[in-house]
């Protein structure tokens, strides 16, 4: 089963070339990538991630608002009962902020030096270690029709 990833760009920054390159690279690695486009609010991202039932949310952020966007995103996921969706990020994030983001549950931040292969390997590893396949199977077994 392909890994399903939501790629989103929050806020007002209009530069989505990076996000599109990421989407295409993950596609070429055999993943199903939901691309939501520009100007997303955390509410929109979480609603889309829940409807699409993705394994991973990938946030592309260059605006410097990461210390606002990620905490809100993590809170909304928790409120929506969707904390099991893995959140990762990439773009321009100061090194000092990365431990703070990880402390609130962001699994990985890929900086400007990361290659697309680093990203693919990272997503595959994170889903293997923290993915939801097991949880999904359990849900069905619990509700199995007689």
């Amino acid at each position: 089963m392909p890994i399903k990833v939501l790629v989103a760009k929050p806020g007002l920054d209009g530069h989505d070339r990076g996000a599109k390159i990421v989407a295409r690279s993950l596609r070429d690695a055999g993943m199903e990538v939901v691309y939501t486009g520009l100007h997303q609010t955390p509410e929109m991202i979480v609603a889309a991630a829940i409807q699409e039932d993705v394994d991973v949310i990938g946030i592309s952020i260059l605006s410097g608002a990461h210390m606002t966007v990620f905490p809100k995103l993590m809170r909304l996921l928790e409120e929506g009962g969707a904390s099991d969706i893995v959140v990762i990020g990439g773009g321009v994030v100061q090194a000092a902020d990365i431990p703070k983001l990880k402390a609130i549950g962001v699994r990985e931040i890929f900086d400007a030096d990361a290659t697309t292969q680093d990203l693919i390997d990272g997503v595959e590893r994170i889903v293997r270690e923290h993915g939801r396949a097991a949880a999904r199977t359990k849900l069905l077994q619990a509700n199995a029709a007689p």
Partner: peptide
């Protein structure tokens, strides 16, 4: 590759 970009949203 089996991959896809789902962009209708």
């Amino acid at each position: 590759t089996g991959g896809a970009v789902l962009g209708d949203r």
